[in-house]
């Protein structure tokens, strides 16, 4: 019996899935996804089929993702939401995205969002991050606030940040904050003894 080989489509989805899995397992680390195609469409084709649903305001992307067999549904119901362009409509849709419920927190939405991997420095903490990760990433405007509104662990949505053949995961477990600007000319402060609560 000949050993089965991957079809080109299977090879592509396996590669994209591996990137998505590590993106979510190691938030704050950038993973490569195959070049030469629209990253949003690749992620959609990896995750979507008749058993799932999606929402996107982008018409070209919608046409392509409908070929997976997944129904296009309103943002309030969709399991996967794709926003290749960031605007007020996207913000409004995200406000309505599913957050899961206490019995089934897995019924929350997954967002695929545009981002750039430079710019403001954020500190990320949480599962998948060894201590803390200092991330230079341009998040869509107001995303941190929208996320703050939505995430009440274990409820809330998970996101993939996508830019030019690269993806980074932002699961609901990650805490993000902006690094305070490093003070430049400052007198050294005498060190005070600190009473720490003993860690359990």
């Amino acid at each position: 019996m000949a050993t089965p080989v991957q079809t080109p489509f299977e090879a592509k989805t396996q590669e994209v899935f591996t990137a998505l899995l590590w993106a979510l397992s190691r938030p704050g680390e950038v993973q490569a996804i195959p070049a030469g195609d629209d990253a949003f469409a690749l992620i959609g084709e990896t995750l979507l089929d008749l058993e799932s649903s999606f929402y996107t305001p982008d018409e070209t992307l919608r046409e392509r993702l409908l070929l997976t067999g997944a129904p296009h549904v309103p943002a309030t119901e969709a399991e996967y939401l794709f926003f290749s362009v960031w605007n007020d409509d996207a913000r409004e849709a995200i406000r309505q995205a599913r957050r899961g419920d206490a019995l089934y927190p897995d019924r929350a939405a997954t967002l695929v969002l545009p981002a750039g991997f430079s710019g403001q420095v954020w500190v990320w903490r949480g599962p998948g991050i060894n201590g803390e990760a200092h991330m230079s990433v341009t998040l869509p405007d107001d995303l941190a606030e929208l996320r703050e509104e939505a995430v009440q662990y274990p409820l809330g949505w998970d996101a993939f940040l996508v830019g030019e053949c690269r993806v980074m995961g932002l699961p609901r477990t990650t805490q993000i904050e902006v690094t305070p600007l490093q003070p430049v000319h400052r007198q050294p402060v005498p060190i005070q003894p600190v009473h720490r609560q003993e860690e359990k």
Partner: peptide, 21 residues
């Protein structure tokens, strides 16, 4: 087949986002 794998892959991503659930 691909559709079985896709379902498992969606599940695994959810599982990673919700440690222990």
């Amino acid at each position: 087949d691909e559709s079985s794998k896709r379902e498992l892959r969606r599940t695994m991503l959810k599982a990673v986002a919700l440690p222990g659930y």
